[in-house]
Design a protein around this nucleic acid. Sequence first.
DNA 1: CGCGACGTTGATTTGCCTCAACGATTGTGG
DNA 2: CCACAATCGTTGAGGCAAATCAACGTCGCG
Lengths: 194, 194
Amino acid sequence: MNALPLFDYIARYITLTVEEQHLMLANINQRRYLKGQYVVQQGDICQFESFVLSGCLKSFYVDPDGHEHIAMFAIENWWVADLGSFIKQKPADYNVLCLETTELIQIHHEKLEELYQKIPSLERFFRIIIQNAFVASQDRIVQSMSVPAKERYLTFRKKYPLIEQRVPQYMIASYLGITKEFLSKIRSQLIHEQ
Amino acid sequence: MNALPLFDYIARYITLTVEEQHLMLANINQRRYLKGQYVVQQGDICQFESFVLSGCLKSFYVDPDGHEHIAMFAIENWWVADLGSFIKQKPADYNVLCLETTELIQIHHEKLEELYQKIPSLERFFRIIIQNAFVASQDRIVQSMSVPAKERYLTFRKKYPLIEQRVPQYMIASYLGITKEFLSKIRSQLIHEQ
DNA sequence: CGCGACGTTGATTTGCCTCAACGATTGTGG
DNA sequence: CCACAATCGTTGAGGCAAATCAACGTCGCG
């Protein structure tokens, strides 16, 4: 298992003793998924929090009309799960699907609860991670209300250049809350303006 | 100071010893605000996390055109702050304003960091709180993309009946991401269809 | 009473969606 | 190595949800 990127990432926020690192290692698993495979499916109970070692995923909701709405993307050094399903251990509202061959480190729900008991500073770690995610999520809500689609697209490109290069445009459109056709028109506008 | 509601609320998630409760008491303050007063203003550095003992507040962003976009409401037993400003100690993007006479319990940023050191289970408490808030925030994003305004209004009424009764409609419209005029039309539709 | 805050209603406009058709690129099997 | 099907992106015509603008009604309150 290649847990180094995970421990590096954790080390940005908290310090783990060697014993704590071993304890974690004993309670996590690495798993490889192929492009097109589901990590979580709507209706499943989400068993794992997953840390992305390599690859790319999307988490999305499929509405009753069959339209897909992307909640977030995840690439290297991101966490992904259906958090609502994970914390309440209830059926998932979201799907998590691999857009590329993807290596994940997964922590099972029960194991994480045990780890929280044994390594209290892990609570701090996840508090900080989720706090940041929450702030970003609030900002995205307000952006979607106050900023027109063209500007949201430009902001996305600036904020997530790595993602923009790796995922097809119709998924970016879905993330931005617009149709692929409309994003296409925005892009052609941007080209003609400059 | 009337910290009972706060301790009751905390007790839903973690158990504090008597000494820990005293330690907390020594590091929090109660403060009363009048209707119309700001707890945080855009540009300020947000110094406090505030727990609502009584009253009602809105947190909102004012865009460059002067339009106001409500990120959230807060009533009894909610927490409110500009979290992004609070955690990074940088100028706030949001305002927090009292809609009624409001009693808050406030924890200063520095004191909270100290408390985290001294009472590790507080990390757990806030992790859980913020996890729930994050899940709700993600759902709101997806809702705003997949559900038309009329349904979002009905969902809001069902989910937050207490808030709906206390705040003017134009603010609910702003929270839902629509204009007051359009919400008014939705309401008259709802009346005429039933 | 009169004013300010809030809500409503109607006419018009607009940002974005839907539907449909048409490239361009890629990959895959015959 | 070509055929042809997916997959992805583009373009245009028409439609709808929601915004804008403007006017008016209605309270509660100083």
